[in-house]
């Protein structure tokens, strides 16, 4: 059982990520940001849940959509905001932008946006951990689209062959841009058959409850280190009200399969995790106060940085 304090911290982190991304989206719509953006809104629980089970020396790689991975691993908030605006105080001094998050001091060793390419990179990072004989793992976040690239399948086999301690996390929001799984996969496509057949363990779950994700990740990390074999954690997440990139705000777009605006709201990871805390006996006022304070603090912090940045007028 996770402590209440721990669960409250996870909720607070998710709220912080959402709040800052909403602020960034606002400025993007006002043509103040000239970095491509991919927002994680709706998917915060996968990053926060996974990273809450890791130590600093567990090394994480992300992808084109990685604000949440970076912040969840403890990446510097200010440096992320600066980077998105192309300011030299950013985590990559403005050379990378939103798709290149980096904070090596907390074990977030980079995000790169060529989809499945992070799978081999993460395997190499896991190899370096193995060579150093540390009791840690590498974690690679990829999307359900990227998980269709050969680099992913090749990497599972390679990592299994070389006993590389790596956890591949598939964040499955059901869409590659706006292509659904049924547009992209054979009728009998089977994740467990493929992944277990390549030599990794496989577990699939809903990611709405951040605590459940945290517990599962902890268990899988232990198994990776004990069994000396890679693993795949397949997390079903809900794409929020923003589309693939841009960002673009979506109101009931035609491509969505079952996730109506009502479904998205009802299954939102922050709402679900908040309700679970209350069900477990935390006073609703306390939870609401935590959320309100986190949003307020995040806005203040963001505006403080934002006011120091020269942006297009």
């Amino acid at each position: 059982m996770l402590s209440t304090e721990f669960s409250m911290n996870l909720l607070s982190k998710m709220v912080q990520i959402r709040a800052v991304e909403e602020l960034i989206a606002d400025d993007f719509f006002k043509s103040k940001i000239f970095s491509f953006l991919h927002l994680s809104i709706g998917q915060e629980s996968s990053a926060v849940g996974v990273c809450s089970a890791l130590e600093t020396d567990d090394l994480v790689m992300g992808n084109h959509r990685s604000h949440h991975h970076y912040l969840a691993k403890g990446g510097d908030f200010d440096k992320m905001v600066y980077e998105v605006y192309g300011d030299s105080r950013g985590c990559c001094k403005g050379y990378g932008g939103s798709m290149h998050m980096l904070d090596r001091s907390v074990g977030f060793v980079g995000s790169t946006p060529i989809l499945g390419s992070v799978a081999p990179l993460g395997t190499g990072i896991g190899f370096s951990i193995k060579a150093s004989k540390k009791n840690n793992i590498a974690v690679v976040f990829i999307g359900d689209g990227a998980a269709e690239e050969g680099a992913f399948y090749e990497s599972i086999n390679l990592a299994a062959l070389m006993n590389v301690p790596v956890l591949f996390v598939i964040e499955d929001n059901k869409y590659s841009v706006i292509s659904a799984h049924s547009d992209r996969k054979a009728k009998d496509y089977s994740y467990p058959k493929i992944i277990e057949g390549l030599g990794a363990t496989y577990h699939r779950m809903e990611a709405r409850d951040v605590n459940a994700v945290s517990k599962q990740t902890k268990l899988m990390k232990e198994n990776i280190l004990a069994d000396r074999k890679p693993a795949v954690l397949h997390l079903d997440v809900v794409r929020g009200t923003y589309g693939h990139s841009g960002p673009m705000k979506e109101k009931a777009p035609g491509y969505r399969v079952n996730d109506t605006p009502e479904f998205i709201e009802a299954n939102d990871c922050i709402t679900v995790s908040k309700d679970l805390l209350i069900q477990n006996g935390v006073e609703p006022e306390k939870v609401e106060a935590l959320i309100a304070n986190t949003i307020k603090e995040t806005e203040e912090k963001f505006l403080n940085i934002r006011n120091q940045i020269k942006v297009r007028i």
């Binding site: 060793v109 081999p120 993460g122 190499g124 370096s128 090749e154 990497s155 390679l158 070389m162």
Partner: peptide, 22 residues
């Protein structure tokens, strides 16, 4: 080290290794 016939992934593994000091 011999490797699978997976040029993309074993090259990428090496890139990841190099990024961490090997």
């Amino acid at each position: 080290l011999d490797v699978p016939v997976s040029e993309l992934s074993f090259t990428g593994m090496a890139v990841g290794m190099a990024s961490q000091g090997l």
